[in-house]
Simulated assay, not measured.
Amino acid sequence: MKAQVLKAFKYQQLIDMMYIANDGTISKRRVKILKVSGDSFQAYCFLRREKRHFKIDHVLSCMPVQVKERQIV
């Protein structure tokens, strides 16, 4: 999972991730990674609308957000 997090940070991509908290609750979050340090990272969480700290080991899955452009024909 660390490789995907580092890649999203490098290319400044938004990611959708499934995350398990310390108490065992699972949530789906859309985040933009701001800083990676060791086994954790800081990101802006669009669910909570604030900067949050996450442990890389607690990320269950992550996918880059695909942005579709609309065209007027």
Rank of each mutant, 00 (worst) to 15 (best):
A8Q: 06
H53I: 14
V59D: 06
D23A: 02
L47K: 15
V36P: 04
N22Y: 07
K55G: 05
I26R: 09
K51Y: 02
S40Q: 11
D39T: 13
K35T: 04
Q71K: 13
A8I: 08
R52Q: 08
A21E: 02
R49G: 03
Y11N: 12
K51M: 08
Q12K: 15
V65P: 02
G24F: 00
V36C: 12
I72Q: 14
R70L: 14
M18N: 09
R30S: 05
I26G: 01
Q66R: 10
V5S: 06
Q42D: 08
K7C: 10
R29V: 03
R29L: 03
V65F: 11
D39N: 15
A43G: 05
V67K: 13
A3R: 14
R30I: 08
K32M: 07
Y11F: 13
H58K: 14
R48N: 11
R48G: 05
Q66P: 02
K32G: 01
A43N: 06
E50Y: 07
S61N: 11
E69R: 09
M18W: 06
V67I: 15
I26Y: 00
M18T: 13
F46K: 05
Q42W: 09
C62P: 00
K35S: 04
Q4N: 14
F41P: 01
G38T: 04
E50Q: 15
D39Q: 15
S27Q: 04
C45R: 10
L60Q: 12
Q4F: 13
M63E: 15
R30E: 05
Q4A: 14
V36T: 06
K10R: 13
V5Y: 07
R30Y: 03
V59Y: 12
K68E: 09
C45I: 07
S27M: 01
Q13K: 14
C62Y: 04
K7F: 12
D16K: 12
G24K: 00
S61T: 14
Y44P: 00
Y19N: 04
V5E: 04
A8G: 06
A8F: 09
S40G: 03
K32R: 11
D23L: 00
M17K: 06
Y11S: 11
F46G: 02
M63T: 14
V65D: 03
R48S: 11
P64I: 05
M17F: 10
K32P: 01
K10D: 05
S27G: 05
A43R: 10
V73M: 12
Q66G: 04
I26E: 06
